[in-house]
Simulated scan of single mutants.
Amino acid sequence: MVIALSSEHEPIRPCGDRLRTHFLTRGDAGPVGRWFRVDEATNLAWVQAITRGAGYPTARFKDQIAIGFVKPISGAYIALTFAPDLSDRAREARIPTVAAWFVTNDGVHPVAVDIEPDQLGVARLHPKWPVDILQQKNVTVVGTGSIGSAAAHALALSGVGTLNLVDPDRLLSHNLVRHTSSPRHVGKKKVDALKIEIEALRPDTRVVPYPINAITAANRMRELLQSTDIVLCASDGVASRRTTGHLARRAGKVAVLACVLEDGALGEILRLRPWPDHGCLTCRRDELRERGSIDPEPALNLPYGEGTQHRPMTAVGSDLQLVGQHAAKATVATLLEAAGIPDQRLPGEHMLLALRPTPDWPTPFDLRRASEIRWLPATPPKPGCPTCEQT
């Protein structure tokens, strides 16, 4: 790591401290290297040498250095060759401006070099990804267990600017087998653990923890939803899912609900839009029953792995995280579709994902092969629904 440099007899100048988290900052500092200004042929030779995994004689390297070459008196040193005047052809060929060499008396060998870019973080995805739009978005995640924590990480990775995390529970040892958080956070509130981890990994995302219950703190949820663009609910309880969907619809916000069904055999994502022709969660389930299917909601009240001995939780952590990532994608796609980005339209409003397929389940839950995905349309509200009919 270069932390300071000088040119000839000029004073030593620091290179800045943007890499304070790099592991090399814990090493000893000292004048251990040289830098030389060269033409593009020298750095082309570096490309050729590192491609072959071989070096070449020190005498040849010396001939390429116009001024200032220093012969290794004992041992070796690192040399940087700086070629600021690359031709357009050289740039197109991806010849680097800076190359690194390990210089000994017997020969020089190319060394991999990593240069910190001027622009860091999610901004580097621009203009290929609508970073400017997502950085302005505020997403509330209700439930930060295995699915919710994965969804929160994926939302931050997509570039969402603010995440509100709602969950009253603490991270316990038995959660670790499926949760994204590490053992060092056991005992902390899940929302606090995720704030530490996400902001360390994705500093472009601001995380605001709310260690509250979405049901008993419904008034605080109503206030929070006023500044929220969209809600992602990954809670595994029937009451919290229905409450979140109700509050979101009354606030005029889209809610994306994510869970697993049949003890982890299926992943499900529902997008609930507050539109007159789109029913709420209860209306959707009623429609399924009327069509001869089933309402899988009651089984969600059992915590993971606490079903009967014949129906244990079958989803592993990667399955649950896959559901969380799909939920995050649905959330981001909804935000971007509303912003007028057409390539982020989803094929439906209700997604089913086969994790451990159960073909004997009634339609539409009868997926037959792992990773099979089925999309379904929205269904209209039921007459008299207290959520869908505004009073």
Rank of each mutant, 00 (worst) to 15 (best):
Y210P: 03
S227I: 09
Q226A: 14
P209G: 03
T228S: 13
I212G: 06
A200P: 06
R202T: 11
A193Y: 01
V208N: 13
M221W: 01
K189Y: 14
G187W: 05
E199V: 04
P209E: 02
A214I: 15
V207Q: 09
M221L: 07
M221Y: 01
D229C: 08
V208R: 11
L194V: 06
R220P: 01
L201K: 04
M221C: 01
A214Q: 02
L194Q: 02
E199A: 02
V207A: 03
T205L: 03
A193V: 07
M221D: 02
P203H: 02
R222N: 09
V231S: 02
R184L: 08
K190Y: 03
R206H: 09
Q226H: 13
V208F: 00
R206Y: 03
A217F: 14
N219I: 05
N219A: 07
V186Q: 09
A200D: 10
L232I: 05
R202P: 01
K189E: 11
S227D: 11
Y210K: 02
D204M: 05
A218Q: 15
K189V: 12
E199M: 12
Y210Q: 00
I212Y: 10
V186W: 06
S227G: 13
I198H: 12
D229N: 10
D229P: 01
A200K: 10
N213L: 12
R202L: 10
R206L: 12
A217G: 08
T216K: 04
Q226M: 13
T216Y: 14
L201E: 15
V231K: 05
V231E: 00
A214R: 05
G187C: 04
V207G: 13
E197W: 03
R202A: 04
L225F: 03
R202V: 08
